[in-house]
């Protein structure tokens, strides 16, 4: 299992399309930094088919004023939860 990290918003970069094409069914996707803009309800359609394995970092949501706008399909994790995800994944791949 790979954990993919994405720090770009789907509204500013097409890199999320490459991430999705490179992901396997068991892989997870963690949105951090500007990647969390993709977690709001109006943007989350850019990440189809990831229910249960699409995560967003709480502190990056909160610092951007997005805590109440995160779509219910996205699992919010704090930094501790982020570390836990990297424990479970043998490798991580960062996309930017």
């Amino acid at each position: 299992m790979l954990l993919h990290l994405l720090n770009r918003a789907p509204s500013s970069s097409s890199v999320h399309q490459d991430v999705l094409r490179a992901m396997r069914e068991e892989d997870g996707l963690m949105l951090i930094e500007d990647g969390v803009f993709g977690a709001v309800s109006a943007q989350v359609q850019h990440f189809p088919g990831l229910e249960g394995r699409l995560f967003a970092l709480r502190e990056d949501l909160e610092s951007r004023g997005l805590a109440g706008r995160c779509d219910a399909r996205v699992i919010i994790v704090d930094m501790d939860g982020f570390v836990a995800l990297t424990e479970d994944a043998q490798r991580t791949v960062s996309w930017f």
Partner: peptide
Amino acid sequence: STPELSTVLAGHRQIFN
């Protein structure tokens, strides 16, 4: 091809992107 991308990633011990 797109379905093969994840196979390429999975086949390597270290990945730098």
